[in-house]
Simulated assay, not measured.
Amino acid sequence: MPDLGKYASTVLSAYGVALVLLLALVALSLWRGRRVRAQLQRMERRMSRNG
Rank of each mutant, 00 (worst) to 15 (best):
Q39C: 02
L12H: 15
A38P: 08
M43P: 05
G33T: 04
A38D: 10
V26I: 06
L23M: 10
V11P: 09
V36I: 11
R42G: 05
R32W: 15
K6C: 01
P2W: 09
Y15P: 00
L19F: 06
G5I: 02
R34Y: 01
G33L: 03
N50W: 10
V26T: 00
A8V: 06
A8Y: 11
M1A: 15
K6L: 02
D3E: 04
N50R: 12
Q39M: 05
V11Y: 15
Y7K: 07
Y7S: 08
V20F: 09
P2M: 07
K6A: 05
V26D: 03
D3H: 01
R45P: 01
R49K: 03
A24G: 07
A18S: 14
A24Y: 07
M1D: 12
N50T: 10
R49V: 02
A38F: 07
S29K: 05
S13Q: 14
M47G: 09
M43K: 13
L21T: 13
K6W: 00
Y7D: 11
L28P: 13
S9N: 10
A14D: 07
L25F: 11
G16W: 03
L12C: 14
R42I: 04
L19M: 06
V36E: 12
S13L: 09
Y7N: 11
R35P: 04
Q39L: 10
R49S: 05
W31E: 01
S29W: 06
A8R: 13
Y15D: 02
Y15T: 01
T10Y: 10
L25V: 08
L25K: 03
V17W: 06
M43V: 11
L40D: 08
A38Y: 13
P2A: 14
R32P: 14
G16A: 01
D3M: 01
W31V: 12
S48E: 03
A38H: 14
L25G: 13
R37N: 11
A8I: 08
D3I: 00
V26S: 04
Q41W: 10
A38G: 10
G51E: 05
W31L: 05
N50D: 08
Y7T: 05
K6D: 02
